[in-house]
């Protein structure tokens, strides 16, 4: 019992620190990548190749002046960024990060909590994501913040639908809500081969749910100053900005798990290594997939211009939603005939 408890706490701490670390360095990779695309160097002053830049950014945010508007709703103003941060970290609980590690006869699966409703849990947490932004935007008592919050919430509600239907067609195919089993079923072939359209829809919706370009209208600086975080400063602002990168990391992990075989490496059984080493290798392979998706997120941001708001709504409701519905129906028919 006590061993089990220690292992769980250690696993949770590792995943938490890893998410924070990866999110930290995702900011640096983003700036470097932006530099590459715009034909300049990007940050290169702090440390060799600028690898201390995220640390400097963090320190800067911590020591900035805390500012709170006079007319703000004090409690909700503080609750907003905290909620956003908490919700973006919550999803990592059900993602299977690897197989099982066995030490001295005890088996330790590399998943914090496995339940029979993993995928629904992810839905639930994703649908909670909108509250942090809405509460923060409303509590600031600023028209730009409110407009940003309203935009964010309507955008997230609209894209949740298509995202849900895309996942539903995967569930229909695999016949399970458990992520562990979804991964296990993909040993021979990845889900993306059978469900390319579902993956495309899921990826576009993930961009919209994480408020990334080309869907970053809630913080559209040309029209709304800073959107929902206009009135925020110091580490409260840091939480909002940082949670975007954690969301990117987690949604990359979900995409890798649902569509790209999770921690399964092709031909891994032929290597003839010990089971523990194979598990670690699988986890490393999962992280390679996650990093590729993170790069894709960043690449899209610096390539595509922002949508207009009516275009965004049109894309969500008139293109993605019917496509996801058709995909679901076709999957249903194929599963019935099989």
């Amino acid at each position: 019992m006590i061993v089990y408890l220690i292992y769980k706490v250690a696993l949770i701490t590792t995943i938490l620190l890893l998410s924070l670390l990866i999110a930290m360095y995702a900011t640096l990779v983003e700036r470097k990548f932006a530099g590459f695309i715009q034909d300049r160097y990007g940050p290169d002053r702090a440390g060799p190749w600028g690898i201390l830049q995220p640390v400097c950014d963090g320190v800067k945010l911590f020591f900035k002046e805390e500012y709170m508007p006079n007319t703000a709703d004090k409690f909700l103003y503080i609750l907003g960024p905290c909620l956003t941060m908490m919700v973006s970290l919550l999803t990592s609980a059900v993602i299977p990060w690897g197989g099982t590690i066995s030490i001295a006869g005890n088996n330790f699966p590399l998943q914090v909590a496995s339940s029979s409703v993993d995928i629904l849990y992810i839905f639930a947490v994703v649908s909670m994501g909108v509250y942090g932004i809405m509460i923060g935007g409303w509590a600031s008592n600023n028209k730009f913040a409110l407009l940003g919050a309203v935009r964010a919430s309507s955008q997230m509600i609209s894209y949740e639908l298509a995202m849900g239907l895309a996942i539903a067609s995967v569930i229909l195919m695999t016949g399970t809500l458990s992520l562990q089993q979804t991964v296990d079923q993909q040993t021979s072939m990845w889900n993306v081969v059978y469900q390319p359209l579902a993956f495309l829809i899921f990826f576009i919706c993930a961009l919209a749910e994480t408020n990334r370009a080309p869907f970053d209208l809630p913080e559209c600086e040309g029209e709304l100053v800073g959107g929902y975080h206009t009135e925020y400063s110091a580490m409260k602002l840091g939480f909002y900005l940082f949670s975007e990168y954690i969301n990117m990391f987690i949604s990359s992990a979900i995409m890798a798990t649902l569509f790209f075989g999770g921690y399964h490496m092709p031909f891994i059984d032929k290597l003839g290594l010990s089971p523990n080493l194979l598990t670690l290798l699988g986890t490393a392979f999962l992280f390679v997939k996650i990093f590729l998706f993170l790069l894709l997120f960043i690449w899209v941001r610096w390539t595509l211009p922002r949508f207009r708001y009516d275009q965004l709504m049109k894309l969500g409701w008139k293109v993605l939603f019917p496509l996801a519905l058709i995909n679901l129906i076709i999957t249903g028919i194929v599963m019935l005939l099989k």
């Binding site: 639930a124 809405m134 919430s153």
Partner: peptide
């Protein structure tokens, strides 16, 4: 009743209350 719990959160807390707040 895990299914009921999660669906309760998705439907009520995640969808209906967002519209209320909106």
């Amino acid at each position: 009743a895990q299914f009921l719990a999660v669906v309760h959160i998705i439907v009520y807390a995640g969808a209906i209350m967002v519209l209320f707040l909106f």
